[in-house]
Amino acid sequence: MVKQKSRYLSDRTAAWFYLAPALILLSIFVLYPTVKLFLTGFYEWDGMGDKTYIGLTNYRFLLQDSEFWYTVKNSFIFILGTVPTGMALALVLALLLQKKIRGRGLFRTLFFSPVVTSLVAAGLIWVWLLNYDYGIINRLLMQLGFEKIPWLVSDQYAMLSVIMMTIWKDAGYNMILFLAGLSTISSTYYEAARIDGASTWQSFWSITWPLLMPTTIFIMVVRIIFSFRTFEQIYAMTKGGPTGSTTVFVYYIYEKAFQGFEVGYASAAAMVLLVLVLFFTGLQFAVTRKMRRVT
């Protein structure tokens, strides 16, 4: 009995020992900053001088801050614009490149290459592509007999421009995830369906789509969470403008903290973001648990 207990203890010690590297890193780089952020949200602080405790004032101002709500709206437009369309594109690419076509490896590499490109570098390339006077895209439009579009300089098109760039950037990554999901579907289902005379369309809706659902939901949730955290392409392409039309959540936080010296206020806004992301993570857990129970 005694012996067993000591063994249990040593197991526990060993477990902590094995977990230590991850735990230490997480504590330093995630847990500590989060706690610090939470606390900073209760202060008025310019980032350098003394902090003044002001309780919930930051949160109260945040609720009344029309600019903040405009930012929230922009973030949701961005998410609605990038997630469904980007996923649909990635799924199409994955379905095409799953087939044993010639040059499959080349196409996979090509579609994946934007993913490994730095977001800022890619953003700057898109700034050139979308330039009103000299950009390739407007040149092409003119060749085809269309009017030039003020992509980045008009508040009607700037968000669309950033969304286009983001879809292009992320399609390859989502494609790889879909490809992985597709490879887990046993070919026996398709063989059986073919014997039963199912069309490609039918076998997609009856086999691929339902069996791919866990992957789809995973990608969707991850994309939503990542989209909330969008910053680099906004910084590189539009700096949140024109007239704030591309100021999304994190860009707003950055602007408040590092341009406006309102670190306390920005921390409070970041806490709101954290809660939103936690909500979607919780949703993901709930949905996947339910799905596991169903299957």
């Binding site: 007239t243 406006g260 010296f261 309102e262």
Partner: peptide
């Protein structure tokens, strides 16, 4: 000053865009 200038800049921009 910086905060005021940023606020004003945003409003000037809105006016220039005829919002």
């Amino acid at each position: 000053y910086r905060k005021i200038s940023r606020l004003l800049g945003k409003q000037i921009e809105r006016a220039l865009y005829r919002k």
